[in-house]
Design a protein around this nucleic acid. Structure first.
Lengths: 184, 184
DNA sequence: TCTCTCCTTGTCAGTCACTGACATTAGCCT
DNA sequence: AGGCTAATGTCAGTGACTGACAAGGAGAGA
């Protein structure tokens, strides 16, 4: 039973994705997810503050990877370059997780409530990037705007790549960076 | 009672803002809002699909004003210029509503669930702007990125101006536009 | 004026997300 | 064995939201 204990959280996440894919987010109750994972509804809510959150758990790693890349960037590098350097540093990480991310993203895209939560996570990520840029001496306003604009490009690229993997994530990033720069 | 009928929605919104300000979003039940407005909880949910939505009702006017400004912009004007022209065209509208917007924004900022919903509304607004830009012949990718970047600046400006009206909304927009352009 | 119809609201019962309080169990340390 | 800690189970309750049905008021038309 030791194994059961340690994996309850992971089992809940896995059960949730499967059930959501089959019957949709609203067609599944928290109790059902818990039951399939072999635990109680109460345990579900001990691991996740709400039903949506079961789908959003990997963000921390991404934040860490991106912010540390920003911190490590050469001093002279401007905010936009720094950001795209960071985005490119995590392409491998994301590509390794594609088989997880794909079904997850399908569920999210199909459910307004989940899309809402996703926007929140992206905003938090954006804020983290802005903070990392400020630590490099970028003025507050520029940092915030660069982070938002960059995140838009990054999110764009990731979504397009998840929908159609014909082009790699790197190529999608190139397209988005070029389009962004062409605006100014 | 005819008057009551027609204004139920407006009374609910007003009651909601007052109660939220006093006791916080989570400290107020939908039934209480309804009671103060002189109707039933069920009626509350007939007017608003959920409790949060009672605070988000003016967006349609803003979308209309911004998109029509984009449509009316001179042909030769680039996407960023077009967007900021649109933002400037609604400054008066926003400034007239400041006394409404201020308390509303305070409640939203204090409540994660409401902040989440606000991000959703901003994303929808951003999508509307992107669509309006595409109608002018701006390529899809550029339109989407310009809209997101522009919205970031617009939202930034509006929030700063709501927190401190020392500088007008126009001045805040100037600052944000300049900061955004300086990135590239 | 009477009546028919539409629109809004009230009433009621039910589901489900989420929470606090308390009991229980498993594994680990001594 | 005995006790400590962390994770889980149990139970009862609150509040958001929904579907079904009834009721009342306003306006259109006979």
């Amino acid at each position: 039973m030791a194994e059961q204990r340690l994996n309850a959280r992971a089992r809940l996440q896995q059960a949730a994705v499967q059930l959501f894919r089959d019957r949709g987010f609203d067609g599944v109750t928290a109790a059902e997810i818990a039951a399939r994972a072999g635990v109680t509804e109460r345990t579900f809510f001990r691991h996740f503050p709400d039903k949506r959150e079961v789908l959003f758990d990997g963000q921390a790693i991404l934040v860490e990877a991106l912010t540390s890349s920003i911190a490590d960037a050469p001093e002279y590098m401007g905010p936009i370059d720094t950001l795209f350097r960071a985005f490119r540093s995590v392409t491998q990480l994301l590509e390794d997780n594609r088989s997880f991310s794909k079904p997850r993203q399908e569920v999210i895209s199909a459910t307004p409530a989940l899309h809402e939560r996703e926007l929140m996570k992206l905003a938090a990520l954006s804020d983290a990037l802005a903070t990392a840029l400020k630590a490099r001496g970028v003025p507050d306003l520029q940092a915030a705007l660069a982070a938002r604009a960059g995140m838009a490009a990054f999110a764009n690229a990731t979504l397009a790549w998840l929908e159609d993997e014909a082009q790699g994530l790197g190529a999608r990033l190139d397209l988005n960076e070029e389009a962004l720069r062409s605006l100014f």
